[in-house]
Computed example of a mutant assay.
Amino acid sequence: MAGDDERATGPAPMQGGGFYNDHAQHQAKGGAHGLPLIDRAFEGMALHAPVTLADYGSATGRNSLVPMGLALGHVRRRLGPDVPVSVVHTDQPGNDFSALFALLRDDPESYLRRDARAFASAVGRTFHEQVLPDASVDFGWCSFAAHWMSRAPVMPAGHVWPRQAAPEVRAAFAAQAAADWEAFLAARARELKPGGALVVVQPSLPEDEPTTFPVLMAWVEAELDAMALGGMLTKDERGRMTILVFERTAADARSPFADGAFAGLTLVAEEAREMPDPFWPAYGLDGDAAALAEKHLGFFRAPFLPSLLAALDPGRDGAFREAFTAGLMEALGRRMRAAPQPLLSPMVILTGLYRKAGADPHVGAEKPAASATGTP
């Protein structure tokens, strides 16, 4: 587990052992909004061997199979079956890469099982910096990852969810999120080949909403406070329990391109589309509050619980960590069963296609993006 110094520098890795893969349906549904942009990304792209496809923020890989498979299909249609293609999955060093490689080897939907000339590898480094060589990447994909921050600008932040912190703290997180976004884009600009393209899908907010999870994160905050008051958590542990996520609005994501290209990238297309809580429709049919709570708990636990566990003192043993997890999940489950409601809302899925300058001179230049909104 991360110590204090590690915790201050970035988010904890997603839960491993296949748990994230099994509880990331919401992220998969959101990421699907960006799949049509993969077709557009390859329009007019001058592909030449060697070809590299990059998956930024892969976690343990389940939600990477479809987009990487689609991108690989474009390469095959253009260059044929024999050209070697490198598929590089990147995530922070503590990611469960063993689960990723097991999935790529065993899952029936894995691109490796369908393409003998595709070669998978991984890089353990944060995508807030450059992770691949200059001008080496043809196509990049990043889904439900770019909203994670590189560091906490204020600690303790005063709330488990930065957008629900006090105004001055929220402003500091907003500034850090803006700097992280520019660093992410600048690093991808260095890595992309001239004419290469990047698709980013990220959870966003309607411009008039303060936070994505107003009820869920308020409940988490209350239960952590109760644990601290009861003596289970120390003051320092409780103070470190902030999930390093800051959702951007469409305007936030567009800001680096206010004067045109940014770091050599052009914003080619973007869309902001509302997505309702994916678990709520089933409850409307069966009225099963326990089943709804189980789904919401799985969603919360897979990406966010590791951040809370990483905030515990390094001396906390496995038994304590299991007791903390069980206590928090049971308390949240009681709240969810007592008051069934959509919890993963309001959410907007923001998709963007970015291209590096230097496209094939024989292909007409693409026009800058015109924003679009809609509902599913």
Score class of each variant (00 low, 15 high):
285 L>F: 10
75 V>S: 03
103 L>E: 02
315 G>E: 15
59 A>F: 04
285 L>K: 14
76 R>P: 02
319 A>V: 15
214 P>A: 12
289 A>V: 13
265 L>P: 05
84 P>K: 13
358 G>F: 05
288 D>I: 11
300 F>I: 04
11 P>A: 08
314 P>Q: 11
198 L>C: 02
290 A>P: 00
148 W>N: 01
300 F>M: 04
220 V>Q: 02
372 A>D: 04
79 L>V: 12
191 E>V: 10
78 R>S: 11
102 A>S: 15
116 A>K: 08
228 A>L: 12
247 E>A: 10
88 V>M: 01
101 F>C: 08
154 V>D: 01
25 Q>A: 15
356 K>H: 05
80 G>I: 01
229 L>S: 12
189 A>H: 14
301 R>Q: 10
337 R>I: 14
21 N>F: 04
239 G>Q: 05
331 A>S: 06
181 W>G: 07
160 V>A: 15
322 E>D: 11
307 S>W: 12
302 A>S: 02
223 E>S: 04
10 G>M: 10
163 R>D: 02
95 N>T: 14
2 A>Y: 02
325 T>K: 05
354 Y>T: 00
56 Y>V: 05
4 D>A: 10
185 L>W: 14
2 A>T: 01
171 A>S: 10
362 H>S: 06
21 N>M: 03
263 A>C: 03
204 S>P: 14
19 F>V: 10
119 F>A: 09
142 C>Q: 15
310 A>E: 05
36 P>R: 00
365 A>H: 06
334 R>A: 05
142 C>V: 08
3 G>F: 02
35 L>S: 04
105 R>G: 09
325 T>S: 09
114 R>Y: 01
151 R>C: 03
36 P>I: 10
156 P>T: 11
227 M>C: 15
48 H>Q: 12
92 Q>D: 01
92 Q>C: 06
289 A>G: 07
87 V>W: 14
82 D>K: 00
114 R>C: 03
352 G>E: 05
168 E>Q: 07
182 E>Q: 15
368 P>Y: 13
372 A>N: 08
235 K>E: 14
143 S>C: 02
48 H>C: 06
106 D>V: 11
227 M>N: 06
271 E>C: 11
50 P>C: 07
267 L>Y: 15
174 A>H: 11
324 F>Q: 12
214 P>N: 09
214 P>I: 13
251 A>T: 12
196 G>W: 02
215 V>Q: 13
142 C>H: 09
147 H>Q: 11
217 M>S: 15
289 A>I: 15
303 P>S: 13
375 T>E: 07
297 L>K: 02
9 T>R: 14
338 A>P: 00
31 G>H: 14
9 T>N: 09
181 W>L: 13
188 R>G: 00
220 V>Y: 09
185 L>E: 03
309 L>D: 05
297 L>F: 04
68 M>F: 06
270 E>Y: 00
237 E>W: 03
361 P>S: 09
117 R>L: 11
283 Y>C: 03
89 H>L: 08
320 F>N: 08
